[in-house]
Nucleic acid binder design. Structure first.
Lengths: 347, 347
DNA sequence: ACGTTTTGCGAGAACGCTCTCGCAAAACGA
DNA sequence: TCGTTTTGCGAGAGCGTTCTCGCAAAACGT
């Protein structure tokens, strides 16, 4: 009842194992008659080649590892995952997924397991801004590696990120042009606990880029006030932080949030206070979602090219794997400010 | 520069390959001194066991295949994927993911590839309501298989689904109790193209269960009107169908949608017509999302126990794999109607 | 002190595949 | 016709493990 092997095919076809392999894999010298005989025999006994044995022989697995935060609430990583899985499949590769929940211990374990499973390459969203020895040792052992949504100065690997800074700056400009003079930034980052109004010393590059963009936007304007709140990623803290902004005697006229979870917290708090988005208070966030378009008013958003990023991650990785080139690229994809109805016109 | 093998460890430690294996894998008779010597040698040369070779030898891969619709807009499958990946990891298994986009051709290919990669078991969300020969042949070759979110009468495999019918019925009851007499059902199903008001002959079991629940709810009441619209899953059709409902001279007072995408279409159409959810028109949908709670008013929803389902899928599958029992179970998990503010009180 | 059991380890096979090598038979050339 | 090239195929090795078997040395029993 065991799965038929190449040996079974060979004896069914009355040839040697070598010939059977030649017939099925199409290499070497073999007569057309034998080929069809072997193929018929294989079909008949329901032969399925053992990819494990093939990998063993070839030293390649046609599998890539994905180490990511597959948080279901985060559109960006959901879409990226789907994009990576689909692109990989189209190129003949399968994807072994690990989810880290931004825990560097899980990340390290994931990478060890994937190395042991001998994946041909890895796509990683690193969870912390430091402590990347495990990634560095990957590059040292010449394992193809692509880092997405983060840039890690210490790691010599291709990284693909989005240019959040310029769109964030554009978002600030846009709000200021509409008459806003009191801006607030609600930024979620795993490196703080609770919330605080001063910039944490450690930010991952994606968040850092957004902060820089917002900052650049505010600093080039005169006479505007900018409040900052950095908070951890728990829904409770997000609500507290959003409430603090809304209940302040000096309520900002526009809130910029660094991700959809924060935007949701703002929406909730705003609704509880009977305020109307796009009228009493304005909102801009990062990463588009169908929800941001479905609700009323639509939320103005910084759209990031996630499908392109996913596709590029796979193609760059596969290029590395198949040519074993050591060329490291740092790719920055453009983002777009999509204007909907959530910024009030105060002018 | 090639990866060190067990042979390298053995010669570094001055023992045989067999002894090195014994020391690292902890079996057979071996002296404690040798064990630590071998471990030290392994550590020193940076040995990582080759899981491919282990799989080859053992005939097990400690990998499970997941064939699913990883549509980023669908909370249910996102959460299920995350739950499955995390539970599997905790149990020492890795997950190879395939996305079918509900295309049975891709599903078939995915299953062939996974069989060839010799996964120890499979979790599948079948894409069509018929044509499951590939799944049947899986069960015939005794590959452990768990089907989630669908029940396939022809396939002898464990299936885990949610009891959508009873909650859908409860949702209807709840609306009727609040004075609603004209109900509409907007149901997305891949088996129709465009939209139609009569029940299609072919529905997958998940959709069927919801339709049955809605029907049961309406049929036990007197003097109420129920409109049905079945439509494909494209955003455009969804909007058309939602518009048709809202623009009808006899506009229903409450709309039930079969998933979040349809709910979004309704929200959009309703907003365009300056109607207010929970006041001018009511809405209930299936599958909770943080958005349904964040927006105002919160949308009343039929919550399905997706984390439990994911966990159960993995544990049941692993149980099958590790005991090679052939026991087939059909598990139905309870759902919950979570009331928020989206059903107007007309009484 | 001698026989018996226990202990520790090495030799070698096996998992299923691919591919090199060599050999016989067929095809070719003059 | 005989020598040379080409063709088709089988034998066998090797990828990196695990594990059975057998053997020598150590430990034990009387």
């Amino acid at each position: 009842m065991a799965k038929p092997t190449l040996n079974d095919v060979a004896s069914a076809a009355g040839v040697s194992r070598a010939t059977a392999s030649r017939a099925l894999s199409g290499y070497g010298r073999i007569s057309p008659i034998t080929v069809s005989a072997v193929k018929a025999a294989a079909e008949k006994i329901g032969y399925q080649p053992n990819a494990i044995a093939q990998s063993m022989r070839a030293g390649k697995t046609r599998t890539i590892g994905l180490v990511i935060i597959t948080d279901f609430t985060n559109v960006f990583f959901n879409r990226a995952t789907k994009g990576i899985v689909d692109t990989a499949r189209a190129m003949g590769y399968q994807v072994l997924i690990f989810n880290t929940n931004e825990d560097v211990v899980l990340e390290r374990e994931a990478i060890i397991t994937l190395t042991q499973k001998r994946v041909d390459g890895l796509i990683v969203v690193p969870s912390t801004a430091e402590g990347h020895e495990h990634l560095i040792s990957l590059t040292k052992s010449r394992t193809p590696l692509v880092i997405i949504d983060r840039v890690l100065p210490g790691v010599k690997a291709t990284s693909i990120t989005t240019d959040d800074a310029s769109s964030c700056e554009a978002a600030v400009d846009s709000a200021v042009a509409l008459g806003h003079r009191h801006l607030a930034f609600l930024v979620a980052t795993p490196t703080v606990s609770g919330y605080q109004s001063d910039v944490p010393q450690l930010l991952n590059s994606a968040i850092e880029s957004r902060v820089k963009g917002f900052l650049a936007g505010t600093q080039k304007q005169k006479k505007i006030r900018a409040d900052w709140i950095f908070c951890d990623e728990s829904p409770e803290t997000a609500l507290e932080a959003a409430a603090k902004l809304c209940d302040s005697p000096m309520r900002p006229s526009v809130i910029f949030t660094s991700n959809n979870d924060m935007a949701q917290a703002v929406l909730k708090v705003v609704a509880e206070r009977d305020l109307i988005i796009g009228k009493d208070i304005s909102l801009v966030t990062v990463d588009d979602s169908t929800w941001l378009e479905a609700i009323y008013p639509g939320i103005t958003v910084i759209q990031r090219p996630v499908d392109e990023l996913a596709q590029l991650a796979v193609t760059k990785l596969v290029a590395q794997m198949e040519t074993s080139s050591k060329r490291v690229e740092t790719i920055l994809l453009p983002t777009k400010l999509v204007t909907r109805g959530s910024i009030a016109d105060l002018s």
